[in-house]
Amino acid sequence: MKLHKESKGTIFVATAIFIILGGLAIYFLKIWSLLIVMPLLVIYSLVFWFFRVPDRDILEHKESIVAPVDGKVVMIKEVEENEFLQGKAIQVSIFMSPLNVHICRYPVSGKVLYKKYHPGKYLVAWHEKSSTENERTTVAVESLTGHKVVFRQIAGYVARRIVFYCNEGDNAKAGHEFGFIKFGSRMDVFLPLDTEIICKIGDITKGGLDVIAKLKE
């Protein structure tokens, strides 16, 4: 199983904790140490599972908006996007549990126009205000169809580290990685009002594969 590059520090710490606590349990508890070691082994295995990088065949997209992350669609509504678009947009929000793949992917192909990191709070990720008050990043892309699409990584109550690798002027390719969020959170995508929304609330998405909307040509 391939592991994401963001896993290195976390796995080092998890390995040290597993060895120390497991060693102490075996030394002091003998046969009863299994009551400690087995749950530790399960948690340790979940750390590796969290940082997995699945093999996915990413297609070329022009007008399609693909799911930027694995997760569950929790919001589709018209909102004011005042950081970049300065106007109304359709917001599609996808929530990630700690068990989802946490690679963040471009939802649309085009050119990166804007990027910004915002420090902030750590409200639970499904809280509506988390989109504007939590620690977050914002990226805007001009699509191949000439539309401006904004998407936002949002840290949650558990997630305390979000990273993004893109820069202004980069070529964005729908479905390809641009960042990572550790341990559960949310991605918001802000789309033009005339966008055809294909997904619905409650849908389970696979990042880079599932088409959630289509831009008008």
Rank of each mutant, 00 (worst) to 15 (best):
D203T: 11
C166P: 04
F178P: 00
L191N: 08
K200F: 09
Y165N: 12
G156V: 14
D188A: 06
S185D: 08
A174C: 10
K200H: 13
G146H: 07
Y165I: 07
G202F: 12
N171H: 07
F164K: 06
R186C: 01
L191T: 10
Q153D: 14
F164R: 08
G179M: 03
F178D: 01
T205K: 02
T145Q: 10
N167P: 01
F190E: 01
V158G: 07
F164L: 09
R161E: 14
P192E: 10
K148R: 11
L193N: 04
V189M: 03
I162A: 00
P192I: 09
A155I: 14
K200Y: 10
L193G: 04
Y157D: 09
D194F: 06
A140C: 13
E177V: 03
T195N: 04
V158A: 14
R160P: 08
I201A: 10
C166V: 11
F183I: 15
I204M: 06
P192T: 10
P192R: 10
K182L: 04
K182P: 00
G184L: 02
A159L: 09
V141C: 09
V141W: 00
T195W: 00
I181S: 01
K200L: 10
F151K: 13
V163Y: 12
E168S: 06
N171T: 12
G207W: 02
G169V: 02
S143G: 07
T205L: 11
Y157F: 14
D170F: 05
A155S: 15
I197G: 00
D170L: 06
D194L: 05
G202V: 12
F180Q: 05
G179H: 02
I154Y: 13
E177C: 01
T205I: 09
F151H: 14
G207E: 07
I197Y: 00
F151T: 08
A140N: 05
Y165V: 05
F183W: 15
G146K: 06
A174R: 02
G146T: 08
K182F: 00
E177F: 00
V163E: 15
T138R: 15
F151P: 02
K200D: 12
T195F: 05
F183P: 01
